[in-house]
């Protein structure tokens, strides 16, 4: 899957976006299977960018192309299909169901494609140290625990690109390494592209390219 950004700018940023952004109003190509690091200070719009690519925000100018098709032309069913089988995401706000248990949150994703079986889910949860917590409702978990649930959830489907928005912000060093290994494994297995947005450079992945969202501050 190739994602192409053409003169993209979110409407709220039109007045205040810096002239030298590596993304906004530029031509950006996220090539298939390419791993990209997106460095951006908070408030510069990286979550907005991920939401635009994922189709959950439409208040922008310019174009987003996925495999040569403008995402503006996608129907609700097209998006559903894409989110099931080709594009996965961990949002910064995680978007878990607080009232459901960790397990139910994971099964909601798992049952859509059944790419990963329950034993494999349990294995990942054990590696990340949240196996015992999965019966608790997500609302009662700590943010770090929820982050791990969301990371596992993003790996329970086929995908050609994985979008991660500050996925490790509330994890300790040991869990960051384990999570990074799981992600790396899943992407390699699927030959998938990866786009990680973070506040600064990280050492967990080997990136093909690094983009600065806001060069004046970066």
């Amino acid at each position: 899957m190739q994602i192409q950004l053409e003169h993209l700018i979110p409407e709220p940023l039109i007045e205040i976006a810096p002239k030298q952004s590596g993304i906004w109003l530029q031509q950006v190509i996220l090539a298939p299977s390419q791993w990209t690091q997106l460095v951006a200070p908070s408030g510069s719009g990286k979550s907005t960018l991920l939401n635009i690519i994922y189709g959950t925000r439409t208040d922008y100018q310019g174009q987003v192309w996925i495999d040569g098709k403008s995402t503006r032309s996608f129907s609700a069913d097209d998006w559903a299909q894409l989110r099931r089988e080709r594009l996965s995401v961990v949002f910064q706000d995680l978007r878990l169901f607080a009232d459901l248990s960790g397990w139910d949150n994971l099964l909601l994703k798992q049952q859509l494609t059944e790419t990963v079986n329950k034993e494999q889910i349990a294995k990942m949860a054990t590696q990340l140290g949240i196996m015992r917590l999965l019966d608790k409702s997500c609302g009662t978990m700590s943010y770090g625990e929820r982050q791990r649930v969301a990371i596992i959830r993003s790996l329970l489907q086929p995908f050609e690109y994985l979008l991660l928005d500050e996925p490790f912000s509330h994890l300790d060093e040991a869990n960051r390494q384990i999570a990074a290994n799981l992600i790396q494994q899943a992407c390699t297995q699927r030959n998938a592209g990866l786009l990680i947005a973070g506040l600064g450079a990280d050492k967990y992945f080997t990136y093909h390219q690094s983009l600065q969202l806001d060069e004046t501050n970066g």
Binding site: Y54, T56, A76, D77, W79, A80, Q81, L82, R83, R84, E85, V89, F91, R95, L96, F97, L108, K109, L112, Q157
Partner: peptide, 15 residues
């Protein structure tokens, strides 16, 4: 909100 999250997960509106 819940319906929104389900759509984010890839559930079809018609479904």
């Amino acid at each position: 909100v819940e319906i929104g999250i389900l759509l984010d997960l890839g559930y079809r509106p018609s479904e």
